[in-house]
Nucleic acid binder design. Structure first.
Length: 430
RNA sequence: GGAGGGGUUCCCGAGUGGCCAAAGGGAUCAGACUGUAAAUCUGACGCGAAAGCUUCGGUGGUUCGAAUCCACCCCCCUCCA
């Protein structure tokens, strides 16, 4: 029924490590298995880093398994030290609980909760940890862990060995908690497989060992690759910050643009990781691009597919509408309603009063005059204008004394400000 | 509790009384080139048009003058107990 699931993961580049691959394959191909992945609330939204495991759960469900989405209401209070260079500040219980609620609505969109045996479920590890007495926990769970083995884990080794850093007992304990989750889910929901990012390997194997010791059950782990970029910079960040899944934090337009700007070296790998396109389809795209000289088609396909997965058809349409309008440069041809729609679609916009303002003020007002450090200053606005980086309604302006007059606005109401190649802002006269 | 090392502008990291708004690298931003790429080149990179103002863990002090010296405090790391 499941087909050769691991083979599917393999060609997509989704397989980083797997415990006992042969037995795991047999296990997955011989029935519906409950497979879990945890998501810790470290912010009020997930970002695209979580997209790989989220989509992996969906792929597993499509292939006949039952996804369990675990929200780290408990682990989020502790903080995962895995491969983190520094100890992190603790977040308050109320804050974490609020984030859990937000993540819940977010992850729900990715799996099916009503499809019989494979229906997904959502759990919160706070439910089985909050009321465990410390002494019971230390005796029943802690006894199974060897500190000698724990400090050997690659994930914490650098923290322990690195001069100038350290690790608190709190974070050191994280692995024990996550391992306990696996054992608990095994007991409560017959969960036998855990997936996670490659940085989770240490935590996952900890859970495998604990489940064997506490429940006498054989369970498995799979890790997914951490997405990288060919140029070595961190995946998922742009000049304007992290790419979030929450449309209120990263508009579908920005999300779409993020994928559209993927590097050629990365884009075909991303098609495998972030879309449900089949192997032959992706290979066809690759071949077509190799045969042409201009812009690659892959980025557009990736942006379209990924945006639809996360923001739906409506989000995708909005994103494309804005992109087409802005990058065609044909502002004059846009109808008043079109411009209005762009603002509704998520193009950043600001309303201003009066009959005119200086260009520099407009750049500050709109937030476009942002320094590399993230501050918005008049001086930076001046630098941009002097550096020929600013255009208004498609016209480059390099005069720092320039005024924006309402009478020159498109449809008497709009100025489209552009700073650099890719940053736009709509100024609306009230 | 004892001994030692350390906290510099987003990050790493020089700087040990004036020439320091603070070397160098990275990241970031802009321009040119281009495909809304990559690579490369150029410029910017505390605030300010400028004068000047505000920065080097914190608070006081010494001095004409301090990131640099002194005192106390906070935080981090290593080793010992």
């Amino acid at each position: 029924m499941a087909g050769d699931l691991l083979a599917e993961f393999e060609w997509r580049g989704l397989l980083s490590q797997a415990s006992s691959p042969d037995e795991l394959a047999a296990h997955l191909n011989s029935g519906t298995r409950a497979i879990y992945c945890g998501f810790d609330p470290t912010a009020d939204s997930l970002h695209i880093g979580s997209l790989v495991p989220l989509l992996a759960l969906r792929r597993l469900q499509v292939l006949g398994h039952k996804p369990i989405l675990l929200l780290g209401g408990a682990t989020g209070l502790i903080g995962d030290p895995s491969f983190k260079a520094q100890e992190r500040a603790l977040n308050g219980p109320d804050v974490v609980a609020g984030w859990v609620a937000k993540l819940r609505t977010q992850v729900e969109a990715f799996v099916d909760f009503d499809c019989g045996e494979q229906s997904a479920i959502i759990v919160n590890n706070l439910d089985w940890t909050a009321d465990v007495p410390v002494l019971d926990f230390l005796r029943d769970v802690g006894k199974h862990f060897s500190v000698n083995a724990m400090i050997q884990k690659e994930s914490v080794k650098q923290r322990i060995e690195r001069e100038g850093e350290g690790i608190s007992f709190t974070e050191f304990t994280y692995m024990v908690l996550q391992s306990f989750d696996f054992a608990k889910l095994n007991e409560l929901h017959d969960c036998t497989v855990q997936i996670g990012g490659n940085d989770q390997w240490g935590n996952i194997t900890g859970g495998i060992d604990l489940t064997r010791r506490m429940n006498r059950q054989r369970v498995f782990g799979i890790t997914l690759p951490l997405v990288t970029k060919a140029d070595g910079t961190k995946f998922g960040k742009t000049e304007s910050g992290t790419i979030w899944l929450d449309p209120a934090k990263t508009s579908p337009y920005s999300f779409y643009q993020f994928w559209l700007n993927a590097a050629d070296e990365d884009v075909y790998g991303y098609l495998r990781l972030f879309t449900f396109l089949q192997q032959n389809e992706i290979e066809a795209i690759e071949a077509a691009d190799a045969a042409s000289t201009g812009r690659r088609s892959a980025q557009g396909i990736l942006a379209t597919e990924a945006t639809r997965l996360v923001h739906g058809d409506a989000g995708l349409e909005a994103a494309q509408r804005i992109s087409d309008a802005l990058f065609s440069g044909e502002f004059a041809n846009l109808a008043e309603g079109d411009l209005e729609q762009l603002a509704l679609d998520g193009l950043p916009s600001t309303e201003v009063d009066g009959t005119g303002m200086t260009l520099l003020d407009a750049l500050v007002e709109s937030g476009l005059a942002q320094t590399p450090r993230g501050e918005v200053t008049l001086g930076q606005a001046r630098k941009f204008v002097q550096g020929n980086a600013v255009s208004v309604n498609g016209q480059k302006i390099s005069d720092t004394e320039a005024m924006l007059a309402r009478e020159n606005a498109l449809h008497d109401r709009f100025h489209v400000l552009r700073r650099g190649k890719k940053l736009f802002h709509l100024l609306k006269w009230r």
